[in-house]
């Protein structure tokens, strides 16, 4: 594999990874913000009003509360900020803006989610994950494996984003000092 092919492959893998992660975060935000009485992927699910938002966020608050890790004020604060944070992360990942820092934040966030899920699973808590909004999403071993996969992708995107930024920086530094490009001898 030539260095150019390797660079191109890395670039495409990074693109696919960040788009997949972005879609995942957008879907997670949509699941939490859509009206709870609407079916997913319908027009009604896009009719988000202040009242429907209030209900959706309280529904999410109940799911956070079932983990029994935070006081009421913490539950309320998290339930009202996390969906927006996920939406912002999703948009940034899809657009590719500030990729290094957003992917790093994504990895940290997914690490926290994974730790919380493992803790609850080991404690034998029979609760819903609540990861993608309301609905039965039982906390099982396979759910944890899925979370490991998400975390691995996020980590790969973060490493890839930093690597690519470094490669670009090095290229910028080396190009001016390389001197004039070689020209083909005139016949």
């Amino acid at each position: 594999m030539t260095p150019q092919t390797r660079t191109r492959l890395r670039h495409w893998l990074l693109l696919v990874g960040r788009l997949a992660l972005g879609a995942l975060f957008l879907f997670a935000a949509y699941g939490k913000l859509r009206p709870v009485d609407s079916a997913p992927f319908t027009l009604a699910s896009l009719k988000i009003t202040p009242n429907s938002l209030d209900v959706s966020m309280m529904m999410f608050a109940m799911q956070i509360d079932s983990y029994q890790m935070l006081p009421s004020w913490g539950v309320m604060a998290l339930s009202h900020t996390l969906p927006w944070l996920e939406l912002a992360i999703g948009l940034f990942l899809v657009s590719g803006l500030l990729l290094r820092w957003v992917s790093l934040l994504t990895t940290l966030l997914l690490t926290v989610f994974f730790a919380v899920l493992v803790h609850s699973y080991l404690a034998g808590m029979q609760i819903n994950c609540g990861c993608f909004g309301p609905g039965a999403e039982k906390l099982t071993g396979s759910r944890l494996l899925l979370e490991v996969l998400f975390l691995a992708v996020a980590l790969a995107v973060t490493i890839g984003a930093f690597f690519e930024a470094r490669a670009r920086r090095l290229a910028r530094v080396t190009v001016p000092s390389a001197g004039p490009p070689e020209t083909a001898p005139a016949d």
């Binding site: 309280m58 079932s66 539950v75």
Partner: peptide, 20 residues
């Protein structure tokens, strides 16, 4: 509309959901 709530929910949080 019937919504499932699985696990324990504290009263202050359930109360706010009902109010909403």
């Amino acid at each position: 509309q019937k919504m499932p709530i699985v696990g324990f929910v504290s009263y202050p949080i359930l109360r706010r959901y009902i109010d909403a």
